[in-house]
């Protein structure tokens, strides 16, 4: 039955994806990509991947729509008709790739097959070692934070680099201030109902973000999701109360500091491991008891991830807003 639900949701996703490609109206494309993200999250949930579904929820539902719309406010609402000269080549490449991918799926094991290669390689070792070495219920967090700490460090640096890149593209140092003053103050402050309801919700979203951050070892969640949730609550504040007030609460200088300090905290935990006589990102040496050390290390690096993600998302939002139109 679950398979039927999955296939149904995947079909809906396929229809949505084709519609996104087909439509020339970019606003419609943004709305449809919101739908796509919701369907994708339901699919992740069906496959029991709660952590990924939560990420998709936090980033896809709120923030990406806001960012797409701010980008759209800077450009035209309609896409120009694409060049037609290379259409046949493109069609041939896409058809060939599709056929190759479909051919490759014949060799794939059934979903959830215990004999599948993915369950034979390192996964059993992770499952066994999580109980002995780290002693937290959520294996995903253990894998993400400790066993594959290097990969997560890489991810944080990808977020860090991407944030810096976007800021380089969007920031116009000279023209910034005058525009923010005039446009940023209006916003949705005159709409009574959204403003009242939104203001009531902001503390709860923040609280939920902190819960996701620190409950990541026990349930679905962690730094990436929490960072997105906290950023969403502050973006909500900026939408309701105006850019200027949001910037007064969290100035851009502080946001830049957040971006750097999160990544630095992650690296610092790794270096602390070396200084205390272990390997880079080996948390066992952080406390007297190796298990406690692992838990402490995971909490610290998750905090680093959360800080960086919050900083990057908010900086990108403010950079868009500073362009004056949104």
């Amino acid at each position: 039955m679950t398979i039927v639900f999955g296939v149904f949701l995947l079909t809906l996703m396929l229809v949505t994806a084709i519609a996104i490609v087909r439509t020339q109206n970019l606003f419609v494309a943004v709305m449809l990509s919101g739908i796509f993200s919701l369907l994708l999250a339901s699919n992740f949930f069906l496959l029991d991947a709660a952590d990924v579904a939560l990420t998709e929820a936090a980033v896809g539902a709120g923030i990406s729509t806001v960012l797409y719309l701010s980008a759209l406010a800077l450009s035209a609402q309609h896409e120009h008709a694409p060049y037609s000269s290379h259409r046949l080549i493109a069609l041939a490449v896409v058809s060939f790739t599709t056929l190759a991918v479909i051919y490759a799926t014949f060799d794939q094991p059934r979903v959830g097959d215990p004999a599948a290669p993915v369950h034979q390689h390192v996964a059993p070792w992770y499952l066994e070692m999580t109980r002995d070495a780290i002693d937290i219920p959520n294996v995903v967090t253990a894998v993400l934070g400790s066993f594959r700490g290097y990969d997560t460090l890489g991810e944080v640096f990808v977020v860090f680099t991407a944030g810096i890149g976007v800021l380089f593209l969007l920031d116009k140092p000279g023209a910034r201030h005058s525009q923010t003053q005039t446009v940023g103050q209006v916003r949705l402050r005159h709409y009574l109902i959204p403003r009242l309801v939104g203001r009531m919700l902001i503390p709860f979203i923040l609280l939920f973000g902190l819960y996701v951050q620190f409950h990541g070892e026990y349930g679905p969640g962690g730094g990436f999701q929490a960072g997105a949730l906290v950023a969403a609550s502050i973006i909500l504040y900026a939408l309701l109360e105006g850019e200027t007030r949001a910037l007064r609460a969290l100035p851009r200088r502080l946001l830049t500091l957040l971006i750097a300090s999160g990544a630095l905290l992650y690296c610092g935990v790794g270096v602390a491991g070396i200084l205390l006589g272990g390997n880079f990102l080996d948390y066992s040496v952080l406390a007297d008891d190796p298990v406690k050390g692992q838990q402490l290390g995971i909490i610290l690096i998750e905090a680093g991830v959360g800080i960086t993600v919050t900083g990057v998302l908010l900086s990108i939002f403010h950079a868009f807003a500073a362009r004056g139109r949104f």
């Binding site: 709120g62 923030i63 729509t65 701010s70 959204p194 709860f204 939408l239």
Partner: peptide
Amino acid sequence: LINFIGVLAVLEF
């Protein structure tokens, strides 16, 4: 909690 932020952004847009 988050769903309606998108809708508010549309309103603002």
